[in-house]
Design a protein around this nucleic acid. Structure first.
Lengths: 340, 340
DNA sequence: ACCTTTTGTCGAAACGCTTCGACGAAGCGT
DNA sequence: ACGCTTCGTCGAAGCGTTTCGACAAAAGGT
């Protein structure tokens, strides 16, 4: 494996010159640059990442903190990861997946102080998140995917839940629905302060008021069974219900199944709009789910860009970037059949 | 940030001694070790990963090569990733996700020669895979998830497709089915030599012969729509069909939907067994899918262990480890209603 | 008791790069 | 022609480890 010294010798220059050609830190004459580049090509030279990292104290690797729940990564999360990786690569960075639990402070501390990673992307952010406090204390640059209670001094990239919920409700209202349910994440995640759960709950309330319609929120497990229970409960609590907004994809499928078994026709009896859903999953259902498509990959790319910018500028001001999900009308939403 | 020199000074020993305490490369007296450990704790010392990597020419990071298709990672793949990460961490390694296309040789070459990664886990292996040739040429240690045409000299960890298909067919035969279809991956992936597609096709043939029943194989897209088309084609080609084996989860859901719309009752008219399927997805369907549950996380852990072993031993002999999927009977398989 | 290992420790030389200070050679305003 | 920047290059000092050779002291073998 050729080293920089070999390249320098071959090109008849000093190693520092070779380094400058590589990093562009100082001006180099065209003639010299060409000779160096040629020498590199001839020797199949590849800079040694470790040596570079040691000398520059920058690894060009960013870590993606994602709590592994044991369950599958949803399509949104996957898209996020690929989007982030892609964006990182374009900037000459690598992305390292770090499945670290939300409260595994030791592991995170090790990661952050090892100087292996230049910064972090933090997924699945809680309203009050210990990882945030820790990273802050350690002065590691990071960007949140989601938001904490108080985002002052933090960089956040997130789905615009307010907008998304409002768009979804608006869609139903426009079709003529006047009583809708919102099937949220579980009561447990609401209680634990899971951001999306709490924020959509608030946004739903606001949307109801804004559009002057009635509705109920039902928290439930993120499973098909959870969806079944939720829709039963919702219909009990609000019999004139004609529209359902649902946060979780699995629950959405459960709702569809339950309604079908109850002899109800989707979308004519009840419309279902799934939130933060990818196309693949939406097509799994029959009829295909009308859904708010999550901007997963765009989010990943945005988060990465923000982080890299901060690494470059050393800037740590508050920053927030929100991307809404876009409505994709498919088969599960329509004008309700019978006006009361 | 404390360095090894600080620790050495504080403990009253030389830096090399500190290093030996850390790496265990040479014997150290208990008294010294305790002093050094104490000094580390007091200083919150964390070894610098880059310096370590440079000096030892080992990064303690392994790369996971996974071609990003733009689509979501299935539950199996996700489980694989988490299993691998987990196993790596237990051994003091990190796992880095590298979304590199199957034929993006340049990118892979850069990765492999950069000395950032000690070895590779290769996912989505084709029967003839350029990455394998390249890694071999570069003498990078690696382990395949899947198998190439000729696995001589390679280390492979894979799902035991032969066993899995045979188990699935056996399940149907035992219930009394005599004509079954196998809905495989797309014709395109078959043609491109995608291992699982080709191997299951062969295994299905073998299973039919072994159990003396008839059947047809239908390749189709890995989508719900693909599943719908496939089941229609299968029933045309083999009207007495009572059982279906299906490779892709999305297709499985499509098949269920299509059968329901055709007025057929699952499992009484037709049984459906989904291959290589995770529990979450199986429960999405109604009735829940009888499926061969893929050993995703176990595979990941196994692959990692094999790779780490090779890194330690410098051993490069042929090695193969196959894990079968295990049958999970749920609601979509049963004794067929009417004996002919 | 003598020679040979083994044990425990140290100092110093890498590892392959970045970056700083220095310095001659141009280029420029006057 | 005179200083003044800017340009282009070099040598050398790190970056924080690991690892090698050396060596004194303790332990074994006969």
């Amino acid at each position: 494996m050729a080293t920089m010294t070999d390249v320098a010798r071959r090109a008849g220059v000093s190693v520092s010159t070779v380094s400058y050609v590589l990093t562009g830190t100082r001006p180099i004459s065209d003639a010299t640059r060409d000779r160096v580049l040629a020498a590199m090509a001839e020797l199949d030279y590849q800079p040694n990442a470790m040596a570079r990292g040691l000398a520059s104290r920058r690894s060009n690797i960013i870590g993606l903190l994602l709590p592994l729940t044991g369950r599958a990564l949803g399509a949104t999360e996957t898209a996020f990861v690929t989007g982030a990786t892609e964006a990182a690569r374009e900037a000459g960075y690598h992305l390292m997946l770090c499945p670290v639990g939300t409260d595994d402070s030791d592991e995170l501390q090790t990661l952050a102080t090892q100087r292996l990673l230049d910064g972090f992307l933090v997924m699945e952010v809680q309203l009050s998140d210990r990882r945030v406090d820790l990273l802050r204390k350690l002065e590691s640059p990071f960007v949140l995917i989601g938001r904490t209670e108080d985002p002052t001094g933090l960089a956040c990239v997130d789905i615009d839940f307010d907008q998304t919920v409002d768009d979804a409700v608006a869609h139903l209202v426009q079709l003529g629905h006047e009583a809708v349910a919102y099937v949220n994440h579980s009561a447990a995640s609401l209680a634990s302060g899971y951001g999306p759960a709490k924020r959509t709950a608030a946004a739903f309330e606001a949307a109801l008021r804004r559009h002057r319609i009635t509705g109920v929120m039902v928290p439930t497990d993120d499973t098909a069974t959870g969806g079944r229970q939720a829709i039963r409960e919702a219909r009990e609590r609000c019999p004139r219900l004609t529209g359902v907004l649902v946060m979780n994809e699995n629950a959405a499928l459960g709702i569809l199944a339950e309604l079908r078994e109850a002899g109800l026709d989707v979308p004519w009896d009840i419309s279902v709009v799934s939130m933060v859903t990818s196309e693949v999953v939406a097509d799994l259902a029959s009829p295909a789910l009308t859904a708010m498509t999550s901007p997963g990959s765009a989010l990943g790319a945005a988060a990465t860009r923000v982080l890299l910018k901060r690494l470059a500028d050393g800037d740590g001001t508050t920053y927030e970037e929100l991307l809404p999900c876009v409505l994709e009308v498919r088969g599960t939403s329509a004008r309700p059949r019978k006006k009361k």
